[in-house]
Design a protein around this nucleic acid. Structure first.
Length: 832
RNA sequence: GCCCGGGUGGUGGAAUUUGGUCAGACACGGUCGCCUUAAGAGCGACUGCCUUCGUGGCGUGAGGGUUCGAGUCCCUCCCCGGGUACCA
């Protein structure tokens, strides 16, 4: 065979077409086909199609593909599908600007993504492809919505919601970052609106507890725990008898420190609390309180949220009774108390809470310590005693509870409150229900209608999908653009047949992506979202790969969906993603996040055109540990390309001498350089396998193949059969990272399709040499190295070391105190 | 503040499983050589710092400690990145 240059533009399309023609990566749902094979569901987060894919996508899919390929070749039945998260704001904003239907830009972008996934040679089961904007998909998104509605997990309520004045839509709490819209950065306002919610708070405990059952990065788990924010404590009732002693009003507060109840010296309500103005009506405090509340409500979330801001507030001129000691304490309104958390009111315990301390100092309120280290009965409160915590804290100044250990006192006080009907143990969450309505066009319509007679009526399942109507104007004007499609909005009530109007809000796009991994399992099912038997055969996703930016939103919502659907008996799994892998970002060459304004964007298309898909894929995996961020380097890609080229030429040299394709079998009794090569090849098998399995260390896996190839170059005179074995092994091992080159080289050498070959097994006999270099230390310093037989007993190693010249030269006649022998490694002689 | 990560050459990083030699694999960059009319590609050698070149000294953010032996374990601290925050 004539010499051939490594030309990715020739070999890559060749294999891509073959895989496509043969549907190589399609996997059947028929249990008959499984033949006892284990399943592996490998999934990368689906892309939001916008323009062309960028290097982050390349890394994401190169990672997932490597894992999918590895599982296939180790005998697993692999589901590796692809789809598009097609609804969303960028396409819609573009439509507002250009007047072109968002579907057009979206479909164009999808075509581009699809093209590049083929061009990168990602092993996708294309028969399951989906996009969330297709009626055949969102029909089932609506179906799931109706299931949630039926079980009370979807509901409508009027609430103060976060409103983005720029995007003209409400936002979920999770989409508000530092008081600003996560998408456009505008300050978020509060609006009182009737909106749709999903009752995710019902699942707070399970979402928290089940984190212990999944193999996710600790930091993602920590973020979710943080977000759910479970606090254990007690609800305590304070009674206000000032306004009308005949009709006392009870105010509950939540506290995590019921043990400090005797230290409450004041009581504070949030400015939004509905009773604040009622409490001061007609009193001399009315004007001052009114002014303060107005000020607090108009203040931006940002200013108000500033922890370092001095405490402000206004006295209400009323008191409440502390249930434990009957003491009246003054009431205030202050903006450091939030209406959204707990009950919107708190007890002020300045001796044991920083914020209460600051407030008490500003308003000259008494500070009474009630918890102190054992033996201290009069701790110094000027010094913020609450910050110090010791193990032996006891209650002081606490009536009948005085002297109890803090933990026991806490329990005793809660028990007492319960008995007296003045409180009970309670748990609070930071997590709020998920607000899913959006006043935008490009989303999944909410399938309900409003009838004058029957009120809110769900659209019957047989009428799904409620298709998105065509409109002229995509601009939201404080209400959904869907409202303008009069023909669509006006409909008849499914219940009474009378006139009705459709819901015009669409769903948050996170709803679409909360169940797509379920649909892949049975993507072409027209009768149901999935067949449960099929679904259960694939779920859960074994390995899920994506960016850390989805640590809270998407991953929490998807977990909620799976739990809710499980409770409806629609699937077996209780967690969607058994193992999660969060990849790091690829930064620009300057170390900054890639952005067109910085001019540091690397387009994968350019790299693929210049060096080929294999080099591009290998490079993004070789660049560093995949979970870490890494800066792009042009010379780095060249280096990887050089390596692939060297592998190609190593094969080419062999083929130039003998181009008969035949299985590359390990020579039975290699010697000399041949033995070195065979050993190195087996070492590489062991190393690459270990690096992929268990730890996703693709960077070191690739470097091991590089070492093997370097070794082949170092021993060009070795026995050709040993070289053939080494080169074919390198080609086989590099398959998950550079599949095209791997296929081409492997086929030319052996006549076989590499993906049909089982993953190689290392020959244990070739993993250890007969001898090793024994390190001989004296007092921990290396003084000699001698050759010793592998597996030699301790005594022999000790004898060899003691006899070595280096050790003898450093004993200096000192007394040998101890000899440490580490088999197959070293001997350390300790002398004095 | 609280919760997660992390700090190793000029650079990205390696040293996996239970602490076990020689820290720095692999790659980038650099220096030199071969090949070439030349350039490029390719091939090969060297490349932590210091050095009075000695079988020399110093080196994994800083300081302590445990150990025959520490990048790896423990304590104290500093710095960087991320998440979260008047959440009671």
């Amino acid at each position: 065979m004539t010499e051939r240059r490594y030309d990715p533009t020739l070999i890559e399309p060749k294999w891509q077409h073959l895989w496509e023609r043969e549907g190589t990566w399609e996997v059947s749902n028929d249990p008959e086909d499984a033949e006892g094979e284990e399943k592996a569901y490998v999934l990368e987060m689906l892309p939001y199609p916008s323009g062309e894919p960028h290097v982050g996508h390349l890394k994401n899919y190169a990672l997932g593909d490597a894992i999918a390929h590895f599982h296939r070749r180790t005998g697993q039945r692999v589901l590796h599908p692809m789809g598009y998260d097609a609804f969303g704001l960028p396409a819609e904003n573009n439509a507002i600007k250009t007047g072109v239907h968002p579907r057009e830009a979206t479909d164009k972008s999808i075509a581009s993504y699809r093209h590049w996934f083929h061009r990168w040679g990602i092993s996708i089961d294309w028969s399951r492809e989906l996009a969330s904007h297709q009626p055949s998909y969102y029909r089932w998104t609506q179906w799931i919505f109706l299931q949630l509605l039926e079980r009370g997990l979807a509901y409508r309520k009027e609430a103060a919601v976060k409103w983005c004045p720029h995007d003209q839509t409400v936002l979920a709490n999770e989409q508000v970052i530092d008081g600003r819209c996560e998408r456009c950065g505008h300050l978020v306002e509060l609006r009182q609106l009737e909106q749709w919610f999903f009752r995710i708070t019902d699942y707070a405990d399970r979402l928290l507890d089940d984190l212990d059952r999944i193999d996710w990065p600790t930091r993602v788990k920590a973020m979710q725990r943080n977000w759910i924010g479970r606090s254990e404590g007690a609800e305590v009732t304070f009674r206000c008898e000032d306004v009308d002693p005949a009709h006392p009003i009870d105010y509950a507060v939540f506290t995590t420190r019921p043990d400090t109840l005797f230290g409450a010296t004041f009581f504070v309500m949030a400015p939004e609390h509905p009773d604040v103005l009622k409490l001061v009506a007609g009193t001399e405090q009315e004007q001052a309180v009114q002014d303060y509340v107005n000020h607090a409500l108009t203040e931006s979330a940002e200013t108000r949220g500033d922890v370092d801001k001095p405490k402000t507030g206004a006295a209400l001129g009323r008191t409440v009774i502390n249930p434990v000691n009957g003491e009246p304490i003054p009431m205030y309104v202050a903006d450091y108390v939030l209406m959204e958390y707990g009950t919107g009111a708190v007890m002020g315990v300045p001796a044991h809470d920083q914020r209460d301390y600051d407030f008490a100092t500003a308003f000259h309120l008494p500070i009474r310590p009630v918890v102190a280290p054992a033996g201290e009965d009069d701790p110094d409160v000027s010094d913020q005693a609450f910050t110090a915590h010791t193990d032996d804290e006891r209650l002081i100044n606490s009536g009948e509870f005085t002297g109890m250990d803090a933990q026991a006192g806490r329990d005793a006080i809660v028990t007492w409150l319960d008995r007296e009907g003045a409180g009970h143990a309670s748990v609070n969450y930071r997590l709020r229900d998920w607000l899913i309505s959006r006043q935008r066009y490009w989303g999944c319509p909410i399938p309900v209608v409003y009838c004058e007679k029957d009120g809110m009526v769900p659209v019957p399942i047989q009428d799904l999908p409620v298709e998105l109507p065509e409109v002229e104007d995509y601009q939201p004007r404080g209400r959904s653009p869907l409202g303008a499609a009069e023909d669509w909005v006006n409909t008849s009530c499914p219940r009474c047949g009378g006139p009705a109007r459709r819901e015009t809000d669409t769903m948050d796009t996170f709803v679409d992506s909360s169940w797509y991994f379920l649909r892949y399992c049975d993507a072409r099912n027209d009768e149901a979202p999935w067949d449960r038997r099929v679904l259960d055969s694939w779920m859960p996703v074994d390995t899920y790969i994506g960016g850390i930016e989805h640590a809270i939103l998407h991953l929490l919502y998807a977990r909620f969906f799976v739990k809710a659907l499980h409770d409806m008996d629609l699937l077996e799994a209780e967690e969607p993603f058994k193992q999660l892998f969060t990849q790091g970002m690829i930064l620009g060459a300057d170390g900054n996040k890639m952005s067109s304004s910085k001019g540091n964007v690397v387009a994968p298309s350019q790299i693929v055109e210049r060096f080929g898909a294999d080099a591009a894929r290998c490079y993004v995996l070789f660049i560093g540990p995949p979970e870490q961020d890494a800066a792009w380097s042009d010379s780095g890609v060249e280096g990887v390309h050089r390596f692939l080229n060297r592998l190609w030429r190593a094969a080419d040299e062999l083929l130039a001498a003998d181009d008969r394709p035949r299985p590359a079998i390990q020579p039975s009794d290699p010697e000399g350089d041949g033995l070195t090569l065979v050993r190195k090849a087996n070492w590489a098998i062991e190393k690459v396998t270990g690096d992929i399995r268990g730890r996703f260390a693709f960077n070191t896996a690739i470097s091991a193949v590089m070492e093997l190839v370097n070794e082949v170059y170092r021993h060009r005179d070795a026995d050709p059969e040993a070289r053939r074995f080494a080169v074919a092994t390198a080609a086989s091992l590099v398959f998950p990272f550079a599949p095209h080159l791997s296929c081409e080289v492997f086929e030319r050498l052996t006549g076989e399709r590499v993906w049909e070959q089982p993953w190689p097994d290392a020959d244990p006999d070739m993993l250890t040499a007969e001898t090793f270099e024994l390190v001989c230390q004296v007092n921990g310093k290396v003084r000699d190295r001698v050759t010793a037989p592998t597996g030699a007993p301790r005594e022999e190693l000790e004898r060899l070391a003691m006899a070595s010249r280096g050790v003898q030269g450093h004993l200096n006649g000192d007394q040998v105190v101890k000899v440490i022998v580490v088999p197959n490694k070293l001997v350390n002689v300790v002398v004095r």
